[in-house]
Amino acid sequence: MDLGLKGKTALVLGAGGGLGSAIAHTLASEGAQVAAADINKDAAEQVVATIQAAGGSAMAVQWDLADLEVIAPNLAVIEQQFGSVDVLVNITGGPPPTLVSGQSAENWRKYFDSMVLSVIATSDAVLPKMREKKWGRIITSTSSGVVAPIPNLGLSNALRMSLLGWSKTLASEVGRDGVTANVVLPGRVATQRITFLDEQRAKREGRSVEEVSAASTASIPVGRYGDPQEYADVVAFIASTRAAYLTGSVIRVDGGMISSV
């Protein structure tokens, strides 16, 4: 299946992580020119190196999502090399495990800026040229916690939830301009973030990581954690020309883990 991404410019935020890296590689394999952005420049450059080694087109961009002042200059660099952004994949880091109660106002502001405002501001920055071209994709990766709140991930559950309302509203505003906006939810996909959360849960509960992982696996109908590539394949389809009628949606890539309809 040709996804129609050849020559498109894709910006992947958080491209140095497990999900972001898989998405960047997959979009590049479909012919997109990928700007791999991450706060860790070395991680972004490693992703670019492997993409280029496979014959793809990519560039690395150091991007601190907590700093809104870097958006304009970073986009200018991308546009100079690849042209304006056609596909934006929003991936942010998650906050540390916490209760939702008793958090300081400073903590809420810190993670709101890096996890929510950064996504909105970057999307707003690329939207004018998408609308001008009558084609664009805004894809935001969040967490299964926005559907079924995850214990001890209070900040994440609350802040990521706001992105659902934003994305749904955005979809209604830009749909007639050929731009789609969708949210993708990972279940327990095997990344460093999930390993970290399993380790933290094991410490809290006085269990081994293997016991925690086994308990989580037992709650997943397909009987295993997901592969980042499986998540990336779904994102690539949403980014494609084939998905022009898919917008305002929340797509779960969770192996059936989320129990609600």
Results as ranks from 00 to 15, higher is better:
91 I>A: 00
192 Q>P: 07
127 L>Y: 03
1 M>C: 12
128 P>R: 02
141 S>R: 00
96 P>C: 06
89 V>D: 00
118 S>R: 03
103 Q>I: 06
108 W>F: 10
117 L>E: 05
158 A>L: 14
207 R>F: 09
190 A>W: 01
134 K>A: 14
102 G>E: 12
170 L>S: 01
75 L>V: 08
223 G>W: 01
91 I>Q: 01
18 G>Y: 00
24 A>W: 12
22 A>P: 10
147 V>W: 11
53 A>N: 15
107 N>T: 13
193 R>N: 05
250 V>N: 02
88 L>Q: 02
71 I>A: 00
120 I>C: 06
146 V>K: 06
200 Q>A: 05
31 G>D: 03
73 P>F: 03
189 V>E: 00
8 K>V: 07
89 V>M: 02
232 A>D: 07
230 E>A: 12
162 S>G: 08
66 A>G: 13
40 N>P: 11
86 D>V: 13
9 T>G: 06
78 I>E: 00
141 S>A: 07
133 K>W: 07
51 I>P: 15
14 G>S: 09
43 A>M: 10
122 T>E: 03
173 E>H: 02
56 G>C: 07
242 R>H: 12
159 L>S: 09
101 S>I: 06
176 R>A: 12
249 S>Y: 04
243 A>N: 03
20 G>M: 13
100 V>F: 15
83 G>Y: 00
19 L>Y: 00
251 I>N: 01
44 A>G: 09
118 S>W: 04
27 L>K: 00
232 A>S: 10
114 S>K: 08
252 R>Y: 07
195 T>C: 03
76 A>E: 15
105 A>K: 09
137 R>C: 11
237 F>E: 11
38 D>G: 09
138 I>A: 13
65 L>C: 04
69 E>H: 08
167 S>C: 07
252 R>I: 04
82 F>N: 11
48 V>Y: 07
46 Q>R: 14
68 L>Q: 15
142 T>V: 14
39 I>Y: 11
140 T>Y: 14
8 K>C: 08
140 T>K: 06
72 A>F: 10
253 V>R: 00
115 M>T: 11
118 S>I: 04
23 I>P: 03
106 E>Y: 02
43 A>D: 08
258 I>Y: 10
180 T>V: 12
30 E>F: 13
33 Q>G: 05
24 A>P: 10
42 D>I: 09
238 I>Y: 00
214 A>R: 07
123 S>H: 08
261 V>R: 09
